[in-house]
Amino acid sequence: MYNFEFEKPSTIADAVAALGGEDAQALGGGQTLIPTLKQRLAAPSALVSLGGIPEMQGVCVEDDGAVSVGGATSHAVVAREAAGAYPALAALAGQIGDPAVRNRGTIGGSVANNDPAACYPAAVLGSGGTIVTNARQIAADDFFEGMFTTTLDEGEIITSVRFPVPQAASYQKFLQPASRFALVGAYVARFADGVRVAITGASEDGVFRWSEAEAALGKEFRPDALMDLRINPMNMIGDLHGSKEYRAHLVSVMTKRAVEACM
């Protein structure tokens, strides 16, 4: 690890100011960033911890029924506090990593990082959520731009993530055997006006919506509706843990299982 300054502001405004410094970087739970620093793969001049900002903490239900999660809220807190209002989201948070990871890692860090095998991006995209930053509100459909890239500007902070709550939803995660991130994860959310299906872990382009499945399930919401649908393996990830074809196959299986779980 290279040396860096450490700051822990208590307001969003102070955090934004601190992040204005050259090569300053936000620190959420550090579950991704700290290992990167230990391996000397990044050299920020300053780390600005978002862990001391009260307004970025916790889960609440807004007037329109949407669930809003503070950007620095840990996975463990979401697993606990969203269980009543949005059980599928809470269940997803409760399956991330191990207890240490869940008690440190944050939703803002996960969504900002946009790891192609991460779980939260599937929930955000699958729910049609909104990423709220210090500067603007970004619809999930506009936010994720491919592996490890998002529309966030330099120094922009995710202050909260808002989730419209569907009638039924389920996240089905097939574990990568070593990391236990998603080898493939399918998030299916059924709303009054349609179905959203978001797939993580599978694609070279990161999290994506499986529009054919959405259309089919929008017509009839049952597992059989997916029977004839196949995803093209070409853009899938192929690696030590599974070929492109295997991942394409798992997309179908996990989506079907998510639909079954919603029934």
Binding site: H241, S243, Y246, H249
Partner: peptide, 11 residues
């Protein structure tokens, strides 16, 4: 015998 290898063998 990872899931992907088993699946590949079955298919």
């Amino acid at each position: 015998v990872s899931p992907s290898r088993v699946w590949a063998a079955m298919n």
